[in-house]
């Protein structure tokens, strides 16, 4: 047997636009990954605890409300505090280009903005795993 890559797709914050998150979840499943999807309105704490229980390799965060600068780094911070920062965090959604460097400094390893083809996300996962 081979180790399966497990990925948590999570929506922090309060926005209910889950079209992108669901699409990515389904497309990653079709690419052969095990994907855990938790639905909308997840707190950073719930996301991190879920990621640890599910022993995922990646967390993909999706947010369209503009709260990414607050919530994405919070997830990374909590992972660190639980010695789980080997889990790789990437993000997507309506995120202005100018926010990306700041997010990367805060431990978000990759940011995918609208229009990113799914093959780019898969390529990233394969290169980072």
């Amino acid at each position: 047997m081979m180790k399966k890559i497990r990925i948590l797709i999570a929506k922090p914050g309060l926005d209910g636009h889950d079209r992108g998150a669901k699409y990515v979840a389904r497309a990653l499943k079709d690419a052969g990954y095990e994907v855990i999807y938790t639905g909308i309105r997840q707190t950073p704490d719930a996301i991190v605890k879920t990621a640890i229980q599910e022993d995922v390799d990646f967390i993909g965060l999706s947010l369209l409300s503009g709260a990414h600068n607050e919530l994405f780094p919070k997830v990374v911070e909590l992972l660190k505090s639980k010695n789980a920062d080997d889990i790789i965090v990437f993000g997507g959604g309506v995120i202005p280009e100018s926010d990306i460097p700041g997010l990367k400094e805060n431990g978000i390893r990759a940011v995918f903005t609208p229009g990113t083809p799914i093959k780019d996300i898969i390529a990233y996962i394969e290169s980072a795993k």
Binding site: R41, T43, S65, G66, A67, N69, E70, L71
Partner: peptide, 10 residues
């Protein structure tokens, strides 16, 4: 607490 990051955003 759940409003963190979201106040006044959208």
């Amino acid at each position: 607490p759940i409003a963190e990051g979201e106040v006044g955003k959208v």
